[in-house]
Write a protein that binds this DNA or RNA. Structure first.
Lengths: 161, 161
DNA sequence: CTCCTAAAGTTGAAGCTTCAACTATTATCG
DNA sequence: CGATAATAGTTGAAGCTTCAACTTTAGGAG
């Protein structure tokens, strides 16, 4: 807030911000390009399948899955519909509670297993090839701070006096 | 490549990757939410205007602008059309050469100046509040490596032996 | 000069995400 | 128990991005 007295970025921050914007713009595009080409799906769809494949019984409540996949419930619902249409996921009601599960089918699991190697190789090339162990830990630490701050809240507009 | 012998991620890499995916998914969403609410445009549109506002004569060839804004020429062309419709940008032919300029109008410049404070405050809160100067430099360094690697090429499919 | 090949942009369609409104189900409180 | 509020999820429309095809213009090669 406080549009009359903004905390402008200093030189280091400007540089970091420029680079960070480049990463958050180009990395998703690069991941999508690879996944689209090699597995005929988006990176987000792959990520959803991957999260499910690691969940107990390969199933997760939709709202939980949305949170773990960093998505809105609406976005997730649409995606689950698409994945269900392809036979990779199915919806199941939750007995004795409200809501429903997204369940990874065998075909869905096979699809993840099949797509993983090329994906992992891409991640290595795009991200980890240039980072030693020390930098990898720095990345995780810095990223965690950002995620926490993003979670705290986007809000607090400027309030424009 | 090499799908038969993939270089799997080790524990540190997995952790860093999980966090990085969260950042590249949630940060753009958070930035868009703020810009949409406070300035009625996407973060990408704002970024395009901001890049133009810092260019000599507030103008840039479309393909150059696309590169600086981390976008495809097609995406940029669509966005320039929208920004032109709003009166913030105009297209001008380049004399003695092919292609055309995107030029920031006075109204466009005013819009950037107006939207900047709230945007900067958001960036501070979402990104820099939790990072000391040292971490900011780490972020820039690590990000640069990623951008370079992404530039090198998405390609190189699995190559499937 | 003329052909032609590549660079620069544009455009429409298709697909994905967001937004807001809506349904359904379940706690909670009186 | 019954009303009400809150949680979980769905859905259609609108908007943005991608993809591929197409137009236009410029720099050669012969």
């Amino acid at each position: 807030m406080n549009s009359e007295n903004p905390r402008w970025l200093d030189a280091n921050q400007q540089e970091a911000w420029r680079v960070l914007v480049a990463v958050i713009t180009r990395l998703p595009a690069a991941l999508d390009t690879q996944m689209q080409r090699d597995a005929d799906m988006t990176h987000f769809e792959y990520f959803v399948l991957a999260v499910l494949s690691e969940a107990p019984e390969r199933r997760l409540r939709l709202s939980t899955l949305a949170a773990e996949a960093n998505a809105s419930l609406s976005r997730l619902s649409h995606v689950v519909t698409r994945l269900a249409r392809r036979g990779w996921v199915s919806r199941e009601p939750i007995l004795g509670s409200r809501g429903s599960y997204a369940v990874l089918t065998d075909a869905g699991h096979a699809k993840v297993v099949d797509s993983a190697p090329a994906h992992v190789e891409t991640v290595q090339r795009l991200v980890f090839d240039g980072l030693d162990e020390h930098r990898v830990r720095d990345l995780a630490r810095i990223g965690s701070v950002l995620v926490d701050q993003i979670d705290k809240g986007i809000a607090s507009g400027t309030g424009k006096a």
